[in-house]
Protein backbone atom coordinates (compact mmCIF):
# COMPACT_ATOMS: atom_id res chain seq x y z
CA UNK A 1 0.00 0.00 0.00
CA UNK A 2 1.11 3.52 -0.68
CA UNK A 3 2.11 6.13 1.83
CA UNK A 4 -0.82 8.44 2.66
CA UNK A 5 0.24 11.80 1.21
CA UNK A 6 -1.72 13.65 3.90
CA UNK A 7 0.79 12.54 6.51
CA UNK A 8 3.85 14.30 5.00
CA UNK A 9 1.65 17.27 4.04
CA UNK A 10 0.46 17.51 7.63
CA UNK A 11 3.97 17.29 9.07
CA UNK A 12 5.47 19.91 6.73
CA UNK A 13 2.73 22.50 7.10
CA UNK A 14 2.40 22.03 10.86
CA UNK A 15 6.12 22.60 11.32
CA UNK A 16 6.32 25.65 9.03
CA UNK A 17 3.04 27.02 10.43
CA UNK A 18 4.16 26.79 14.07
CA UNK A 19 7.52 28.36 13.17
CA UNK A 20 5.86 31.31 11.41
CA UNK A 21 3.31 31.74 14.19
CA UNK A 22 6.02 31.80 16.86
CA UNK A 23 8.23 34.12 14.84
CA UNK A 24 5.32 36.46 14.11
CA UNK A 25 4.34 36.73 17.76
CA UNK A 26 7.94 37.26 18.82
CA UNK A 27 8.87 39.86 16.20
CA UNK A 28 5.66 41.70 15.18
CA UNK A 29 6.54 42.74 11.61
CA UNK A 30 4.24 45.12 9.74
CA UNK A 31 4.22 45.02 5.94
CA UNK A 32 3.73 48.35 4.07
CA UNK A 33 0.13 49.52 3.85
CA UNK A 34 -1.10 46.65 6.00
CA UNK A 35 -4.36 46.87 7.98
CA UNK A 36 -5.84 44.61 10.69
CA UNK A 37 -3.75 41.74 9.45
CA UNK A 38 -0.62 43.71 10.30
CA UNK A 39 1.03 40.69 11.90
CA UNK A 40 0.70 38.54 8.84
CA UNK A 41 3.45 36.11 9.88
CA UNK A 42 1.47 35.16 12.97
CA UNK A 43 -1.97 34.64 11.51
CA UNK A 44 -0.81 33.09 8.24
CA UNK A 45 1.43 30.78 10.30
CA UNK A 46 -1.67 29.89 12.31
CA UNK A 47 -3.57 29.14 9.11
CA UNK A 48 -0.78 26.86 7.86
CA UNK A 49 -0.61 25.07 11.19
CA UNK A 50 -4.37 24.55 11.14
CA UNK A 51 -4.17 23.10 7.61
CA UNK A 52 -1.30 20.84 8.67
CA UNK A 53 -3.20 19.61 11.71
CA UNK A 54 -6.29 18.92 9.61
CA UNK A 55 -4.20 16.82 7.22
CA UNK A 56 -2.72 14.88 10.14
CA UNK A 57 -6.18 14.19 11.58
CA UNK A 58 -7.47 13.02 8.19
CA UNK A 59 -4.43 10.77 7.71
CA UNK A 60 -4.93 9.23 11.18
CA UNK A 61 -8.63 8.63 10.69
CA UNK A 62 -7.99 6.53 7.59
CA UNK A 63 -5.88 4.04 9.49
Amino acid sequence: MNLDIRLPLGVLFSVIGVLLLGYGIASRHTPPGAPWWSNIDAWWGGALAAFGTLMLILARRRH
Binding site: L20, S27, H29, T30, P31, P32, I40, D41
Partner: peptide, 11 residues
Amino acid sequence: GHYFPAGLLGL
Protein backbone atom coordinates in the same frame (compact mmCIF):
# COMPACT_ATOMS: atom_id res chain seq x y z
CA GLY B 1 10.28 41.50 -1.64
CA HIS B 2 7.96 44.50 -1.26
CA TYR B 3 5.15 43.02 0.82
CA PHE B 4 6.47 40.01 2.68
CA PRO B 5 8.15 40.39 6.06
CA ALA B 6 10.88 37.99 7.19
CA GLY B 7 9.26 34.60 7.76
CA LEU B 8 6.62 34.92 5.10
CA LEU B 9 9.40 35.84 2.68
CA GLY B 10 11.00 32.47 3.37
CA LEU B 11 7.68 30.79 2.61
